[in-house]
Each structure stands twice: as C-alpha cells, then as structure tokens.
C-alpha cells in the first residue's frame, strides 16, 4: 500500500493536467460551454447545446481549410515517420554492429540534435537550406540550381527528421543491443546472408522498439508546432499551427478545441498500436 501512496503524486498530476483538461476540451467541443471559464465562454461563433451536439465537428469537416490542413498533417506525419525509420534503422544497425572509428563517430553523431533546442534547429535549417542559404551558395559555385525546401511541405518533413533522429536511433539500437551475438553467429554459420539475418532475425526480434519509434514519432509530428511554424508554408498549415491561431488570434477556441479532439482521436489509434504491441511482447 505504501507503493500505491508513493505513485499517487505523478498520477495526480496526470489527472489534473492531462486527463481533466482533455475531458473539458471534449465537452466544450460538443457544445457544453462552461460559463465559469472565460477562455471558452468568451469565444466567437460558439455552438451552445445543453444536450451535446456534433455541430462544431460538422462545420469543421465541411470547411475546406480544415480538410486541407488535416490532409497536410497526415501526409507530413506519415512521410516524416517513414523517412525517420529509413534513416535511423541503418544508423542503429551500424551503431550496434559497426567496428572502428567510423562507427564511433556515428554513435556520437546521431545524439547531436538532442542537445540543440528545436527552435534553434529550425533556425539553423533555414539558414542552411533556405532561400539564399549556404547550401544554395555552395551548390551555386559548381553551377547546380537549387530550389529552397523551406516554407514548403518538404521543409516540415526535413525538420522533423532532423529533430527526431536521436530518439529513433536510441530506441532502435537499445533494442538491437538485446540481441546476442551468438544468435547472429549461429545464423551466419547456417549460411544466412546479411539480408536474411536482418529480415528473419533482427527485424522480428526488434519489432517492439520499431513500433514505439513509429507511434511516438507519429504523435510527436502530428501535434507539433515549432517545426511547421518555422519551416512550413503559411497555407495549408499543420493542425498544431492552425489550432494555436484559432485559439489565440482568431478567438475561436471552440474550433481550436474541436481540432484538438480530432487530433486526439488520430493519435489514440497510434497509441492503441503501441499498447497492443507492448502487451503482446510481454506475453510472449
């Protein structure tokens, strides 16, 4: 019982600062406007209902702004996660199995973005990849034309890959650490080549970390603000940027909160995948 008492404080913080506000947001998006909450009650274009209604969501999904924003958000999230895995997996493999100085360099290198604040990372990416940036100047000396990716969809993806690498590689390589060398040597002795070893041994044994990387990166990208705000186009926008605008500048908290609820739902699917994968892994 002492144990239960000790774990209560973080659980209490979780309920008060995560679950309760999320629930209030859900209620507000369904038309229950809390009179005692000025941030909600003073909004423009409020839908008010005593029994709950889906009016806000109907309006939201009918708006072309929202659908193109949602489409952009989904596209960017999927592409970023796919690229992140494609870049991180070889690095994790190399960090685990590589020998020599190059592997040592790679092991330090991938940690670098962890120590650069996200705002600064995005600013650095602008100065390098942006219009009249250093990359354009460098490519210009050898006569290669360059079209800036900053303020484009590709810029958001670029930013998320840069920022997301440490977590992805750390997760994947910590999973690979758990796979014994004997196991791999045994497969090698049986004549398995590198491809078979990866496909039949490394990937299946390391599937939970991979799913963790995919879920959490997806959620992270989906709910991001700084990267799309700094590197993305002004229209269409990622949902995070659009939410912040609606909540602040446009004074339409109900729309903002409804978008938040929509993004909770999408990320709940990703979260369910994670919970399913970890509980399955624990059973076997």
């Amino acid at each position: 019982m002492l144990g239960l008492l000790l774990v209560l404080p973080p659980i209490f913080v979780l309920i008060l600062l995560v679950l309760y506000p999320a629930l209030e947001a859900l209620r507000f998006s369904l038309g229950f406007v809390p009179a005692d909450n000025p941030a909600y009650a003073s909004g423009l274009d409020l839908v008010n209902s005593d029994t709950g209604s889906l009016e806000v969501f109907k309006k939201l999904f009918a708006s072309s702004f929202f659908s193109s924003n949602l489409a952009l958000t989904l596209r960017v999230s999927f592409v970023s996660v796919a690229l992140l895995v494609l870049v991180s997996y070889p690095l994790a493999l190399f960090a685990r199995f590589g020998r020599g100085r190059l592997a040592g360099v790679a092991r330090v290198l991938y940690l670098l973005p962890m120590f650069v604040p996200v705002v600064i990372a995005t600013y650095a990416l602008i100065t390098f990849f942006g219009d009249n940036g250093w990359l354009e100047a460098i490519l210009g000396t050898v006569g290669i034309p360059y079209h800036s990716v900053i303020r484009q969809e590709a810029g958001i993806v670029l930013g998320h890959v840069w920022v997301g690498v440490p977590f992805a590689v750390l997760m994947l390589s910590s999973g690979l650490d758990g796979i014994s060398n004997e196991c791999l040597e045994a497969a090698r002795d049986q004549g398995a080549n590198a491809w078979v070893v990866f496909w039949r041994i490394l990937l299946p044994l390391n599937i939970v970390p991979l799913l963790i990387v995919m879920t959490f990166s997806f959620i992270g990208v989906f709910g991001s603000y700084t990267v799309p705000y700094m590197l993305g186009p002004s229209a269409p926008q990622m949902l995070g940027v659009s939410m912040a605008l609606n909540f602040g500048a446009f004074r339409q908290p109900q729309q903002a909160v409804a978008m938040a609820v929509v993004s909770f739902v999408f990320c709940a699917f990703a979260g369910a995948l994670y919970v399913w994968s970890t509980t399955r892994g624990r059973k076997s």
Binding site: L17, V18, Y20, P21, A22, E24, A25, F28, N37, A39, Y40, I219, G220, F222, G223, S224, Y225, L239, G240, M243, A244, F247, P253, A256, V257, M259, A260, V261, S263, F264, F266, C267, A268, G271, Y274
Partner: peptide
C-alpha cells in the same frame, strides 16, 4: 500520447 499542441490549448483554457 496526446498530440502536444491540442493538449496545451486545453490546458491554457483551464
């Protein structure tokens, strides 16, 4: 597990 900006907006209202 919550998309961050959505959660922050809900918290800001609170």
């Amino acid at each position: 597990a919550f998309p961050k900006l959505g959660l922050y907006i809900a918290i800001a209202a609170l």
